[in-house]
Design a protein around this nucleic acid. Sequence first.
RNA 1: GCGCCCAUAGCUCAGUGGAUAGAGUGCCGGACUACGAAUCCGUAGGUCGCAGGUUCGAAUCCUGCUGGGCGCGCCA
Length: 558
Amino acid sequence: MEDIKEKLQGLILQALKIGVEKGELRRVPVPPVELEAPKLPAHGDFATNVAMAMAGLQKRPPREVAQTILNAINDTDHLLARTEIAGPGFINFFISNEYWHRVLRQIHESDYAYGRSDIGKGRKIQIEFVSANPTGPLHVGHGRGAIVGDALCSILRASGYEVEKEYYINDSGRQIHTLGLSVFLRYQEFHGASIDFPADCYQGDYIRETAQAVAEKEGRHLLEISEDEAVAFCAKFAASNILNGIKQDLIDFGVTFDNWFSEQSLFDTGAVDKALQSFKDQGTIYEKDGALWFRTTDFGDEKDRVVVRTNGITTYFASDIAYHRDKLRRKFDRIIDIWGADHHGYIPRISACVEAMEYEKEKLKIILIQLVNLLRGGNPVAMSTRAGEFVTLRAVIDEVGRDAARFIFLTRRYDSPLDFDLELAKRQSNDNPVYYVQYVHARISSILRKAHADGIKPPSSGDSVDLTQLKEPEELALIKCMAHYPAVAAESAKLMEPHRIPFYLTELAATFHSYYNKHRVLTDERTLTAARLYMVSAVRIIVRNGLQLMGVAAPETM
RNA sequence: GCGCCCAUAGCUCAGUGGAUAGAGUGCCGGACUACGAAUCCGUAGGUCGCAGGUUCGAAUCCUGCUGGGCGCGCCA
């Protein structure tokens, strides 16, 4: 596919070469030719600072260098309508309408593939996210991580990366034991026992519900076996029960995974023992004060970390070492962990583990999602799984809707904290920007329906359309905006920043709505109508593709 | 105390070392007898937290400070 920017870049590079050959430019290293889209239309479609960047080594004023470059440009294909030298030495380029019109053909030809690229071709990425403990339902904070991870995956896949999504289930260790104990106590209560329920047990109503389910299934059976056995049974039952709920919540939120990786399986297969042994052999794990320590200080951590306690029980870090060792050996080019920002203190020890295995530190990227502050009418809502005080993700989806919730989560950089006001979200669900964008899709669909009803056939191929009909400033602005989409999608993937997609779509929507209010698509002139139908269908293609990356519906009607 | 993240319009937030820093929302005032008014047009609103530095040029990069969030366990 022909890219205007690349073509222009080629012209400039060629001009530089000619300049040198003619002896008009010194034979010195040239800086990279960077082209940017200026904010002001008066500054052209593209501008470059290359003349300013070269001025020093050329020992000539920037504007003079710029003129030399322009003189040497050989625009045989008439890509440029006009050029100018501006300000301190910018070169501004104005692309001819003909080339902008070609963008519409590209969009139609590419259709679903418009905005896709192969910049990640041949690269395998593993991305692990959510990984909430199966000790309680998902809450809003998990929702943010889920959506960012899910969208990131779609964005990377659209750029040619091969991506695998994984959920790490912490179905082992102390919190699972506490979960089992909590359920068992409620179970005993259910059978009439008077229980002094400990404060460090899980307090939520879902514990009672689970206990009741256990009672329905097992009757009084658990009262007749040893407490250890009973607690273990409850733990397994509850964890699996809760995990099923989590899976359902994620499905309803449109989030899917390729793998569900169990922490317990690392113990069952001996992976933890093997990992610890391997580091012991290597000398990275040593014994002190009756415990086993990982030498994380060798890799920049502030202190060494315990992997096996004096009581012989492994720490969470031990499973995590084994888990990351497993992931690293699965031959990915890169593995990504998405964590809540409150886990940032954990980064040095896990990257120590990566380095101890002699992988490059960059092999593992950790994305920290800042916390979601839950508010109700401006007042903070306490959030604690253990205390049973939280608003579930399900409640939020039910209240504000899946599309609106996804859009809210994605319309912010993940590294800045998010205030999520339930009342505001509910009230704003009607003027959430998501509807602004979706409305474009519905509106264009409606125009096409109307055209069909009036017996107007949309152009079947770009060749049959007279695109020179499209010359209104609003039309060219719309086409230029559309032309940016592939770059936005690629940039979003390269920087791993999903928020760029919704911001772009909002801008495209604004440009479209503005155009729509000023000009009619269906006019009395046949060729003009055909050209405009061709153009707005192209807008619809981009909106649909962009929303698809976000996991948001593109409705025909609203 | 140490570490990580953040600070841009009243509020919520974008912003690629570039030219006059932008949206949404809220306030005020306008636009449907035509393809969907979930839309559009206009007015007002700024010490880019503060102070230095780097350079032709800094909201953007560097240093220090201030303010806020989070973390600093043989918990997970």
